[in-house]
Design a protein around this nucleic acid. Structure first.
Lengths: 138, 138
DNA sequence: TGCAATCCTTCCAGCTACAGGAAGGTTAAT
DNA sequence: ATTAACCTTCCTGTAGCTGGAAGGATTGCA
């Protein structure tokens, strides 16, 4: 069993956040020690890691709750589970594309900079251009 | 020139958020109409899109401000600009890996569901396993 | 020309998801 | 036995929006 500090380190979350998740019932400790310390097992630790990732990509705490339910709710028909999971996967794939674009833009900028001390790092060209913005009222 | 509603639609941000960004000086409108309406040009629109992406991946508003400065601050030596850009690119590449992992986990779950009505969608096996968690106090 | 619908404005209150810090109990090592 | 490094609860503060009220502007249509 991990105490909260160890669970935090192992999951990559701040201790405060782990405690917060326990308070709001997102990831509850398996038990409390005699002195009241929160104790986490491996499964709960996995959940914390999962939640950290999902939160980092814009899923709300409530959405994370739903995602965790996917793992646990044996009552729910698997058709519904699958539908929810596929929805989220779709969102994640969109996020991946957006992340690619962001990466591309910043790489472009970094390449355009020569990296010496002269202050002539050019403004990314696409910034000044008008191309491919959605036309309004055609 | 776009009015705020059009700028919002074109950038994919809520109107309220565009107004908020104007208030905090992150992306200011180029001008105001006679009646006080905010007016945005193409370059500002590009910035809004850029900020939407950066925010979606966990960069704070202040970090976005810094990223936008990369495009604009001609005073700053390009070495420093490049360093900052490369740092951010490194972070983005880490985010990409995490996003891959999240995608993988959810895909795994979705595949494990047969997708019919029977409530036997299995719990992701890795969830119960102990494998590859960091050992503490060795 | 009048009127309704749909924009826009400012301002203020409330929300989510934490983060900081105080006051105090617990544990492990010296 | 005491000191450091944990842990606890509780309470306040912050970032980044979000919703709504009150009112002005613009547009399309009868």
């Amino acid at each position: 069993m991990y105490m909260i500090g160890d669970a935090a380190k192992a999951s990559g979350l701040p201790t405060k956040t782990v405690r917060y998740y326990a308070d709001v019932g997102l990831v509850k400790p398996d038990a409390r020690s005699q002195s009241g310390y929160r104790l986490y097992g491996h499964a709960e630790l996995k959940k914390l890691i999962f939640v950290r990732r999902a939160r980092a990509f814009g899923f709300s705490v409530d959405e994370c709750r739903e995602l965790l339910d996917l793992y646990e709710d044996r009552e729910r028909p698997s058709r519904e589970v699958k539908k929810l999971a596929l929805q989220r996967i779709g969102e994640i794939e969109m996020k991946m594309e957006e992340l690619q674009l962001l990466h591309h833009e910043l790489s472009h900028l970094a390449e355009a900079c020569r990296g010496d001390d002269r202050p002539d790092c050019p403004i990314l060209s696409s910034f000044a251009d008008d191309e491919e913005l959605p036309g309004l009222r055609p």
